[in-house]
């Protein structure tokens, strides 16, 4: 017995929306999804006419849906934006190949320019070479840190005004929860922000047009639209703790679908008592990227790789920053600690 669409009432419903519990047909769902993203973009004033916007494209479902919806909305509502796809090639043999092929097809399908920046050209190291040095266990630290900067550096090369990324409601709820669990007040304050203003030289403003879109709807939007995406994307720095937070959220969502949005709202509405000490946001003295330490994480990791001390960026070794900056040699004990790699 088919369920009918609660909006148009004459077509067969294809999904139950987690956000509203409405049953919608394909056409009504596409419309509702796109209109909501448009509403997000307009209310938060994410873009200005004439801007060049780089869409962080991994070939995964989120960024593919983002690219598609941005293209549709830019035309439907005449935003007047110049859109382009921006991809990062980490240099992982056999892993990125498929997703980069997907991005290349997206370029054709959506008729958007594409720029691929490689770790090799940005850092002088491919992920394959990094894995050889640090082992599989720690490579996500590198991948996450390097990727975040790679998008910025790529965007600067292309003189892009803004970057938008495919982070969805589930991602943001997960991050809120993580920051609560870690007691990271500074990040907790920032993580629900839909856009970040330029935080200094070398950092391009970023925004998240899919902030209020549930993962389930993104997957189904891509599926029903038959969008071409690659399903095994490497998610930014996955770790066991984050995995538990995600699984916990999904369990909550199964009981009450609004949980995802509830967590985001809690994060947005938390206010921090006056007098709580916040870390001072500075810039990396080597590359100019935002950093609360003398050296940003990427520069520390790179230094470690180049000196053959791959553990340098993995633990907390802030007190060594001065030595690194001054190009001073490390003591034998310091070196020994940093060289060991546990697999």
């Amino acid at each position: 017995m088919p369920v009918f669409c609660s909006s148009c009432e004459n077509k067969r419903a294809v999904l139950k929306r987690p956000k509203t519990a409405h049953s919608l047909c394909k056409e009504c769902f596409f419309w509702a999804f796109e209109e909501e993203v448009h509403h997000t973009i307009i209310t938060a004033r994410l873009f200005n006419r004439g801007e060049t916007v780089g869409i962080g494209a991994s070939g995964g479902k989120d960024s593919t849906v983002l690219a598609h919806v941005m293209k549709v909305l830019n035309e439907r509502f005449d935003y007047g934006l110049k859109l382009l796809l921006l991809s990062v090639d980490e240099g992982i043999t056999g892993y990125r190949d498929d997703s980069l092929e997907t991005v290349k097809r997206n370029q054709q399908q959506y008729d958007l320019p594409l720029k691929i920046v490689s770790y090799e050209e940005l850092y002088g190291w491919t992920m394959d070479a990094i894995v050889k040095q640090v082992g599989l266990k720690n490579n996500c630290t590198f991948c996450g840190v390097f990727r975040r900067q790679a998008l910025d550096r790529g965007a600067m090369m292309l003189k892009v005004d803004k970057i938008c990324t495919g982070h969805n409601a589930d991602d943001i709820a997960e991050t809120v929860l993580m920051n609560v669990l870690r007691g990271d007040i500074a990040r907790l304050r920032r993580c629900t922000a839909i856009s970040t203003a330029s935080e200094g030289e070398g950092v391009i403003p970023r925004c998240k047009p899919l902030k209020y879109a549930y993962e389930k709807e993104i997957v189904l939007y891509a599926y029903f639209k038959k969008l071409d995406y690659f399903s095994t994307e490497c998610i930014y720095s996955p770790n066991a703790y984050r995995g538990h937070a995600r699984a916990f959220l999904k369990d909550l969502e199964a009981v009450r679908p609004s949980s995802i949005m509830d967590v985001i709202h809690s994060g947005e509405n938390l206010s921090v008592r006056e007098g709580v000490r916040m870390p001072v946001q500075g810039t990396c003295s080597r590359c100019g990227y935002i950093s609360s330490q003398a050296l940003c994480k990427a520069c520390v990791l790179l230094e470690g790789l180049n000196r053959g001390l791959p553990r340098l960026g993995i633990g907390k070794h802030h007190r060594l920053h001065g030595k690194i900056l001054a190009q001073q040699p490390l003591t034998e004990r310091e070196e020994r600690k940093l060289r060991a790699v546990d697999f």
Binding site: G60, K61, I92, Y95, M127, V131, L136, N139, D170, D171, E215, K216, V219, S231, T232, E233, C234, I235, P238, N239, A240, R242, G243, H244, R246, A247, K250
Partner: peptide, 17 residues
């Protein structure tokens, strides 16, 4: 929907937990 499953670099699927 993929987000709970980590494919890792070696493509062997496992729980992120």
């Amino acid at each position: 929907s993929s987000s709970l499953l980590c494919m890792g670099v070696n493509r062997r699927p496992h729980k992120k937990t």
